[in-house]
Design a protein around this nucleic acid. Sequence first.
RNA 1: GGCCCGUUGGUCAAGAGGUUAAGACGACGCCCUUUCACGGCGUAAUCAUGGGUUCAAUUCCCGUACGGGUCACCA
Length: 487
Amino acid sequence: MDVSKRIRTRFAPSPTGFMHIGNLRTAIYTYIIAKKYGGDFVLRIEDTDQERYVEGAVEKIYDTLRVCGLDWDEGPDVGGPVGPYIQSERMGTYKEYALKLIESGHAYYCFCTKERIDALHKEQQEAKVSNMMYDRHCRELPEDEVKRLLDAGTPYVIRQKMPLEGSTTFHDVLYGDITVENTILDDQVLIKADGMPTYNFANVIDDHLMGITHVVRGNEYLSSAPKYNLLYEAFGWEVPQYIHVEHIMRDAQHKLSKRDGDAYFGDFVEKGFYVPAIINYIALLGWAPKGENEIFSLSELVEEFDISGLSKSPAVFDPLKMKAINAEHLRRLSHEEFKALAMPYIRQTCKREDIDADVLVKTLQPRTELLTDIPEKVDFIDKMPEYSDELYFNKKMKTNAETGLEALKMLLPVLEAVSDWNEESIHAAAFAEIEKQGVKNGFMLWPLRVALSGKALTPGGGIELAAVLGKDVTIERIKSAIAKLEG
RNA sequence: GGCCCGUUGGUCAAGAGGUUAAGACGACGCCCUUUCACGGCGUAAUCAUGGGUUCAAUUCCCGUACGGGUCACCA
């Protein structure tokens, strides 16, 4: 990849709805490449299709990018030297350049009606034409005829005039040189009947005018890249470096799509994923770091990134791996950071204020994969669930309902005597009793955990739970557990 | 169908003309352990296929199969 001059990359989404995860990944790579080499990251909104425009979608793009920390140096809201950064505000420009192409013989007016084009398509389809394209009906229209139609106000589009012979080669940083025969290139529309440029045309114009040096985009544009090159050549402009990245798949044959319910950035946030972990995981889908570490913050990704790690084949999205990455990110957080993230989730089911939240958070942190797992984990704090005495049985600890009753009866007075209620003092008291009675830890602590939670799985063991719940609740629960067992 | 691209364990993937073909997630087993988890250790599991080139190919070349992309006045 050529990085000899100042790099400028751009992320150019169209405001058609939510942020697809594949799109976000493109944005991440685009951002990283710019930052890695001290360049500029530009945000451009491609809203040339008025029919697909979705209200609020632009704000959604801003929000997502900001939440992810992908701050742009230039864009519609922050401005910049080569604005405007919204294509619909650049209309005059495209037309002007299209006319230049007509003058230089690289484009032409086409007056074919939508009906004619549709009929043509149908005809080609029925004839099973292998490469369906426009029949170039208007390509050689005499000049005076064009003028007559124009003067009469006939609707028209402007099409690119592809060479009829030879081949075109373009270069991709990942794929190398790719050559195609010019005969397969369609005379694509540059300016639509409504005066708007097509995506392909606006892209070329804007990338050039905005001084974009590196274009990162999805693989679906690989096939149209030769047409881009022809456009650049026609204008005599330098072609940017292309980096086409493969798609993210649901499985070997399907792309991740909205139907999967996990194709959008927002879906993952809702599911309790931590944003830096989302970024980390999707950056890893289709890109491999040099070393063995794979847990990265955004800035570490910038540091670590190398274009050679990008993959040329599609990657299947693995929700399990993503969870593992998420868990690892959560574990690496400081206590305070994790607490700030976890408290809202704790409060969904645990409203009690008189708990030792720090102990709870501490026990939760290493065993939380998703933040949304938390409410269910702490629901016993407010209210003991119904539970079976079976829970007292543990083969390895050799405990059961009877030994549990015995253990709880030993523990009750000991805990009642603890004056300064905290994890250490409870621990000291409980272990003193364990030693005194000459029993195994589990003999005493397994029943305690059951009596305090009524659950098979809890964050932390009996002592931690006692600390979290507070003395009154702990004593009360042990008493009712004894009553239940004696019942 | 034409054209373009790709193919290393279940998944993400590293890798180089000669390696015991990394690592991670997952699975399984063991250890540790006041449960689960965490941690530690270990096991199973991969070069799509045929033919070249070569002393040697998973790595280079060609074909085949399979998969993906594209073929709009959508982006």
